[in-house]
Design a protein around this nucleic acid. Sequence first.
DNA 1: CGCCAATATTTACATACGTAAAAAAGGGAG
DNA 2: CTCCCTTTTTTACGTATGTAAATATTGGCG
Lengths: 345, 345
Amino acid sequence: MSKPRINTMEELSAAIGVSRPTLSRFFQDPTLVKPNTVARIEAGLAKVEYIPNFFATRLNRKSTGMIGVIIPYLNDLFFTKLLESVEIAAMEAGLTVITQCSHSDPDIEARAAETFISMNVDGALVAPLGDHSDQAVYRRLQSRLPFVMMDSRPNTMQGVDFVGTNHTQSTGLIVEYLCRIGDPPVFLAMPRVNFNALEREAAYIAKMEELGFKPQVLGTELVNEDWHFEKHGEAVLDAELSAGRLAERSILCANDRLAIGAIRAATRHGLFPGRSKEGGFRVAGHDDYPLCPNINPSLTTVAQNTDAIGKKAVSRLLQKISGGLSDDTPEITLFDGSLMLRESA
Amino acid sequence: MSKPRINTMEELSAAIGVSRPTLSRFFQDPTLVKPNTVARIEAGLAKVEYIPNFFATRLNRKSTGMIGVIIPYLNDLFFTKLLESVEIAAMEAGLTVITQCSHSDPDIEARAAETFISMNVDGALVAPLGDHSDQAVYRRLQSRLPFVMMDSRPNTMQGVDFVGTNHTQSTGLIVEYLCRIGDPPVFLAMPRVNFNALEREAAYIAKMEELGFKPQVLGTELVNEDWHFEKHGEAVLDAELSAGRLAERSILCANDRLAIGAIRAATRHGLFPGRSKEGGFRVAGHDDYPLCPNINPSLTTVAQNTDAIGKKAVSRLLQKISGGLSDDTPEITLFDGSLMLRESA
DNA sequence: CGCCAATATTTACATACGTAAAAAAGGGAG
DNA sequence: CTCCCTTTTTTACGTATGTAAATATTGGCG
């Protein structure tokens, strides 16, 4: 059952009668070794238990075959979807992904960056924490590694490669839809924890003005710091409804989690958002959170293409790693959002 | 702005006039070096940019200070909460966590295990994939590393350290509650993707029989493999309600995501689950998914103590790593669930 | 001023493997 | 059988650090 365990290539070399450098080449790429020898090595490996040491193999290589990924939160299905897309794309490219989560803490984010540097990762992918994270960290990563930002981008980081959503388009899309089908929406803003919050808000205002409507933004004051979006949305809408406002309006929420809270507040006030009845009370969100189709009513929203963002971030990082770029102009890729029409608006 | 970059301890030694072995000890623990020298080193470090190489530092140590964690899914807030708890506990213990996600794929899970072994991690924490994962992988990890399983445990892995929830207690608790306040519940089972599914189902049956009621289990046939719990719950309940059954019953769902789907099906049939009206239609879940308080109606459920599970798993692993265990009897720790009374039941 | 203990440095070797160059072996063609 | 080319082995050094032992230095104290 349990084969003899061999710890080093040296021992393995002695055990199966093939020289260590040949073994080294074999483990890097078996095609570098004659088929005859490959067969001999594989026969030998079948009889013992040996795994090359991860650290030792990477210590003296120009490339470690690893990339570092930092995401700000784990308890958010948006980042989780993004991470999944990144991990799968990286795996297909043969890279080992080292993931670190900032857990809402800029210090942890900074430490993660140092860890990546000390690991000699080939590159780093970062979804930033928000406006309270230390941007020196990003600059430092950028100066030392192939580096791509995802999802949101500090406005002081213009010179960096970035992959995200075109919030002007995506927010504009749903504003236009809401205005076309019914009353122009008010905007339930999210706490300004990151830069997308401001972009969406600005996009809402711009589109409303373009259509000749007066924008109205609610809930910009930060209720709490803890990303309790649902509670925030619920509290803001509850206050409005209690004051006798908004009961016949359309409400565009800056993200789906706010919308989930808003719907809950509405229901408690006896309102059931929906697009069935023309012109009535409606709620829409942004992001296409995985639970949107399953809540009551299912949430009309605009989907971010997390899959495309993750894939593109990895492929762009690979480009920068391979270094075959004629110019090093930062590339900004923004994917369009797509309308997900469901019951709530 | 940019300090001279120094890549090796050797260079650093030359640059600031302190011997390399002293620097080595300094980076491992500054208290091993005289305060005077510490000050000299820190003054030197302030003038240059240097980070010890992660791999080199770990190559020749008995302990790498790293633990590997495998979780089966990323897009599930339960695992995400568990991972968060684990990461924070590990961080407090000064460990570097290497996280790998199986992405529903036993092959990926197996590869992750090999990666951990090749990295010489000090120990591994695994939340298994379910009944289609290769249990040889777990045995292999167990034979080579301090190893603790979390969340769910294959019944063929009895001799392993395990930390999870006492499903007999937790499920019993909510069954007892539902029976006490209203009609005895039917059980909406989850697709049998893991071993907890069976435990909860068995616990439901046992408690019902203990209370003198006839158990009734629905939805054991696997609708899909993809953990689309919400769709499964919705489909099963929709079928029942369409057939004119269950409209006045209480429904205990094997987990909250099923319950979310069940509530959606109910709402579409004009039913609004709640405990306000005694004895009417009710829906309850299991796990205390983060969104439970925010859906409509908010979901009555029984909370798994993910925080305690994560902390305990880490501390148990640390015990095994330090090796100060008089016996090596596997330890099974099961935390009780706690009732979260909300609107739905 | 000299001694002792604490600390630092020197020296040397270890970790597990990558990599390059030179030497040896093997295999096929003539 | 010999030559030539390919592949493998040998040899040696490199990667960045840990660690142990011997030696040197330092500081405090009598």
